[in-house]
Simulated assay, not measured.
Amino acid sequence: MEESPGSQTVITTTSSSSSYSDHFSTSTLAYDKHFLRTVPGILILAEIVLGLMVWTLIAGTEYFRVSAFGLVMFVAVFYWVLTVFFLIIYLTMAYTRITHVPWATVGLCFNSSAFLLYFVAAVVDAVSVRQAGHRKHDFSSWAASSFFAFMVSLCYAGNAYFSYKSWRSRDEGN
């Protein structure tokens, strides 16, 4: 067989072992329209809205003058981004297509750590409010962010409880 200078030969092989694509299908995106009507779904929405309030109220001030607010900002933004990520995972039902991840354990660890760190951040926020001194705008924003931080902590505690129930029922089923 004679090849012309511009022709190429392509050789493809297939493997009989399972590949990553066997366990993760992107052919169809599912949408769980009922998730937002469940208590965990409502709590996630509350976490996103209240968490957004926490970090925007602090970011609109001169928070860098009080170093403790760096921790509050980190916790608020970090868990806000991850919560949005988990909302997308739950809404698209991606957890049903990614079977290698123990989602009940991940949810329990995420919500428990979010509660603990957010509660610490809320306490730090509340204690640091008095350092606002004569800056009335900063004082009001920091006081409001402290309130919302405690509210977000309660939401994460609620979701940690539901994650624990899910984890426990899955553990008992095996």
Score class of each variant (00 low, 15 high):
residue 5 P to N: 07
residue 9 T to Y: 01
residue 9 T to I: 11
residue 9 T to A: 08
residue 13 T to L: 09
residue 15 S to G: 01
residue 16 S to E: 13
residue 17 S to D: 10
residue 20 Y to M: 10
residue 21 S to Y: 00
residue 26 T to K: 14
residue 29 L to G: 01
residue 30 A to L: 09
residue 33 K to Q: 08
residue 34 H to K: 12
residue 35 F to S: 03
residue 36 L to A: 12
residue 36 L to Q: 13
residue 37 R to Y: 11
residue 40 P to T: 13
residue 41 G to V: 06
residue 42 I to N: 02
residue 42 I to C: 06
residue 44 I to R: 15
residue 47 E to G: 12
residue 49 V to K: 01
residue 53 M to F: 14
residue 54 V to R: 02
residue 55 W to R: 10
residue 56 T to E: 15
residue 58 I to P: 11
residue 60 G to M: 10
residue 61 T to A: 08
residue 62 E to P: 04
residue 64 F to A: 13
residue 64 F to T: 14
residue 66 V to P: 05
residue 66 V to S: 08
residue 70 G to H: 13
residue 74 F to V: 14
residue 74 F to D: 13
residue 74 F to W: 14
residue 76 A to R: 06
residue 78 F to T: 10
residue 78 F to P: 07
residue 79 Y to Q: 05
residue 79 Y to A: 08
residue 80 W to N: 07
residue 85 F to Q: 09
residue 87 L to R: 00
residue 87 L to F: 02
residue 88 I to Y: 05
residue 88 I to A: 04
residue 91 L to H: 03
residue 94 A to N: 12
residue 96 T to V: 06
residue 97 R to F: 06
residue 98 I to C: 01
residue 98 I to E: 05
residue 99 T to A: 04
residue 104 A to L: 05
residue 117 L to I: 09
residue 119 F to I: 00
residue 123 V to M: 11
residue 123 V to G: 11
residue 124 V to N: 08
residue 124 V to T: 02
residue 124 V to S: 05
residue 126 A to M: 12
residue 128 S to V: 07
residue 128 S to R: 10
residue 128 S to K: 07
residue 130 R to Q: 02
residue 130 R to G: 01
residue 130 R to N: 00
residue 131 Q to Y: 03
residue 131 Q to R: 08
residue 132 A to D: 07
residue 134 H to D: 10
residue 135 R to F: 05
residue 137 H to A: 14
residue 139 F to Y: 13
residue 140 S to K: 15
residue 141 S to T: 09
residue 142 W to C: 15
residue 145 S to T: 01
residue 146 S to M: 01
residue 146 S to H: 03
residue 147 F to Q: 13
residue 148 F to G: 02
residue 150 F to T: 04
residue 157 A to P: 02
residue 159 N to M: 02
residue 160 A to F: 00
residue 160 A to H: 01
residue 161 Y to P: 00
residue 161 Y to K: 02
residue 163 S to E: 09
residue 164 Y to S: 00
residue 166 S to D: 12
residue 166 S to W: 03
residue 169 S to Q: 07
residue 171 D to K: 08
